[in-house]
Design a protein around this nucleic acid. Structure first.
Lengths: 248, 248
DNA sequence: CGGATTGTTGAGATGCCTCAAGTAACGTGG
DNA sequence: CCACGTTACTTGAGGCATCTCAACAATCCG
């Protein structure tokens, strides 16, 4: 978890409390965009703590850690995952700048999964009870939190759907691309930060299958692939493939 | 959706407003169990509307319908599902007494899926804005709603995991059994209310595979199966199979 | 430079699917 | 209450998508 100095936390000067631009942060957006009154916006800003940077491979929290704070990714990419009884790793999601991690921990007040930095990661975090209390006074913030959680259900349910390897991989790549497009860069080049194994565990595939489907995509002119550098060449056809998974 | 008289609503006298025992209702539990102050509890009770009964096969809401009200199943079983671009049905979940449906609709204020009664269903429903407003005054209710949504994320993520057919089927049967055990009846007999096709679409299997795995379970002494009547014979081994899917 | 990690590619195995047929339960109308 | 058509479930045979195992290639990193 994030607020105790457990072994989970790497000893890299978390840089607590330093002010930081939160333009890309979902929580801040929840605050700014929705015309919260100024006092509440200030209060939310005051609750926010900057955490990190965490190095590639560092655990942000581990399964079973107590949950205290709502946390958003400020920069970098986070992978959340569980390891089941048989030792298989299941990746629950990849989270980039502006996305909130660990929402599944509210229920039991413990994280039901691990979170790991895939590259240097910085976080914005605010104590959950304080945010909830603030949401009590600021109805807009409360609704925004409800919407955030509701969206989390939809995203997870989408992953649970029964789609083929190429549909899931296309949807995955487009999701990454759309996130980048939404946060500035419109280039069709993706630099994946996760390994083939991570992608495979996320999409319920073998790593070899991820490789093969990507090569097939390349052969079909959908994209160009070189290790972790992906250039999307035919968004329309990728969208047609991924389209099935849309859920409205 | 639930509060307009759209074609979705069957014309079977929804019995609006009749008082009803809500002992099994998650929303009421959220209220009663957590020491909400009495005024808020009364208010929540006042907001609650009894809906139904809905006949087997009736749509409770359809994809795209506007979302207005938080709704819990009071009796019966509800299936939520989407139909993708290729015409395949994906079952998102089965919801029994005390479970809240349509939480994934808060985000966009529209239902992203369909809901159908699998047997005679009655519902308890309360306007979402009113509940949210009440949660603003009653912090316990607010936290309970956060927890409810958070739990929804966990449940959905669990379904997204990569498990084998027998693991998923075992987990499915145990989930049903545990719900029954939690709400009274401790008999090891289940009467499935959903078809093999529904189960298959939920577990990402073919109906034939559901049949075959059940027969194999029977052959291995895990259970006895006759059409929709399932008698669980070896909970320990079923749990061992399902155990992998636990997510903490 | 050399070992470790990661990604690609091939060959064969397999879990689950598809297609097809058969059987049992259900509902409906007579 | 029975005859019938319909739907739901089961069972078998064969096929396909994906997995596993194995080797190799490329990159990373000390």
């Amino acid at each position: 978890m994030l607020f105790d100095s457990t072994p989970s936390l790497p000893a890299e000067d978390p840089d607590l409390g330093s002010p930081r631009s939160c333009d890309a942060c979902a929580l801040a957006r929840a605050c700014d965009v929705n015309s919260l009154d100024l006092a509440c916006r200030r209060e939310l800003q005051r609750l926010m703590q900057a955490l990190g940077p965490f190095a590639r491979g560092a655990y942000l929290f581990r399964e079973g850690d107590p949950f205290h704070a709502i946390t958003a990714v400020h920069s970098g990419t986070v992978k959340t995952f569980v390891v089941d009884a048989a030792g298989r790793e299941h990746v629950l999601g990849f989270f980039q700048a502006g996305e909130v991690i660990g929402l599944n921990a509210i229920h039991a007040a413990r994280y039901p999964c691990n979170a790991m930095a895939l590259d240097p990661v910085t976080l914005c975090s605010a104590p959950f009870p304080a945010v909830a209390a603030l949401a009590t006074r600021a109805g807009d913030l409360q609704v925004q939190l409800f919407r955030l959680l509701s969206h989390g259900i939809r995203k997870a349910a989408r992953m649970a759907g029964d789609y083929r390897a190429d549909e899931r991989l296309a949807a995955f790549l487009l999701d990454l691309w759309q996130h980048r497009a939404a946060t500035g860069c419109g280039s069709p080049c993706l630099d994946l930060v996760m390994s083939r194994a991570d992608i495979a565990n996320y999409l319920r595939l073998a790593t070899e299958t991820v490789s093969r489907v990507m090569q097939r995509f390349q052969h079909d002119g959908l994209l160009r692939v070189n290790r972790r550098r992906i250039e999307l060449l035919d968004l329309a056809r990728l969208e047609a493939l991924a389209g099935a998974t849309s859920l409205t």
